[in-house]
């Protein structure tokens, strides 16, 4: 019995508590991300933003959440019931499980696996399934068109994203996320690999279906795209999943290019601040830029989006992989 407790049950309880310690703050962050987005967009468009519910409108996300869950669930006629309900669950689930490998500080990681970056890439490439399944199962033309757009868009931008990740891996020599951050102790990768950083950020926008690449849900053409038939809790799951994905992509950007938990300068006043705070600040900076882009840039046309992905980003990132490899080999800078 004691063996069962110490060998199986206790690790299980610790594991569940660790998972809760990641997901609960993440969901709170998602809630306040929606609030922050509305406030920042309000400020950029000289409006107030939410200001009624609670002090400074801080309770607005919870009011919205309550409203969403209190609404009626509608299953469209001719919809495929199981796939229709599995799709939002899948989106939400995928947005959460990716956090298992994210290092918040040195050694503060749920699962420090050897192929962390591949795991993240795999999970983010699965995000398209939630959207495609939702679009197909809704039995609606708008939803289906949104799903088709999204499938093509996410597959296209994944290709250049993979090449950008390869560039970073060439400089690190490891697929482990902790190693990737520690390789940036001298200089963050956003400085030597600046063009890759910019391209990764833009690809991340496309991968998370954010403006100016929000064509899968482009409301001016497709009403609300793939989620047009969803209401109540399934809609809320899509919403939460999308925002959790945005935070995940920001975390990925900060790990790959902005030095993860590392302070900007490696001496006294900066090193006093714990690493997890730096990491959170970097994520917040990326998220702010997402909102900034949304408030600034108009939506792309679909053929322009595809042109950018295949004719600009793919050759450029391929060229940069070759260039980086060449420079590393020529100067003998290859990581051991």
């Amino acid at each position: 019995m004691a063996e069962f407790w110490s060998g199986f049950l206790l690790p299980l309880i610790i594991m569940v508590l660790q998972i809760l310690a990641i997901t609960v703050p993440l969901l709170v962050a998602v809630a306040f991300m929606t609030y922050a987005e509305r406030k920042i967009m309000g400020a950029m468009q000289m409006r107030q933003g939410p200001s009624i519910v609670g002090p400074f409108g801080l309770m607005q996300p919870f009011a919205d959440g309550l409203k969403l869950f209190a609404k009626e669930q509608i299953l469209p006629e001719g919809a495929n019931r199981i796939v229709f309900y599995v799709a939002p669950m899948l989106t939400f689930f995928l947005a959460l499980i990716a956090w298992a490998v994210i290092p918040f500080d040195y050694g503060v990681v749920l699962s420090n696996i050897n192929v962390g970056v591949l795991y993240l890439f795999a999970i983010s490439s699965l995000g398209v399934y939630g959207i495609v399944m939702a679009g197909w199962a809704s039995n609606s033309r708008y939803a289906f068109l949104g799903a088709l757009r999204s499938a093509a868009q996410m597959v296209s931008y994944e290709v250049s994203m993979g090449l950008i990740i390869i560039t970073v891996l060439l400089c690190v020599g490891s697929l482990n996320l902790t190693d990737i951050v520690r390789a940036q102790e001298k200089v963050w990768f956003c400085i030597p690999l600046l063009p890759m950083f910019v391209m990764f950020f833009i690809s991340a926008l496309a991968e998370t279906n954010r403006a100016p690449f929000d064509l899968p849900e482009g409301e001016s053409e497709l009403v609300a795209g793939f989620m047009v038939e969803y209401s109540s809790a399934p809609f809320a799951l899509f919403f939460l999943g999308e925002y959790a994905n945005m935070i995940l992509m920001s975390a990925m950007t900060s790990i790959l290019f902005l030095g993860g938990w590392l302070p900007p300068l490696p001496f006294a006043p900066f090193t006093w601040v714990p690493g997890i705070v730096w990491f959170a600040l970097k994520i917040a900076f990326c998220l702010f830029t997402y909102v900034w882009v949304r408030a600034t840039v108009p939506r792309y046309r679909y053929d322009q989006l595809m042109r950018l992905g295949w004719k600009v980003f793919l050759p450029l990132s391929l060229f940069w992989v070759v260039l980086t490899a060449g420079v590393l080999v020529t100067f003998g800078w290859l990581p051991k």
Binding site: I113, N114, V115, L118, Y119, F121, A122, S125, L126, V128, Y129, V132, W136, F144, A147, L148, A151, A152, M154, V155, E158, G162
Partner: peptide, 24 residues
Amino acid sequence: EFIAMILIIVYVGAVAVLFLFVVM
């Protein structure tokens, strides 16, 4: 683990998406 991740990235993340795309 490398084979497992590549299996998911290549087959599930790319090939099966296009497959699903066509079948739909």
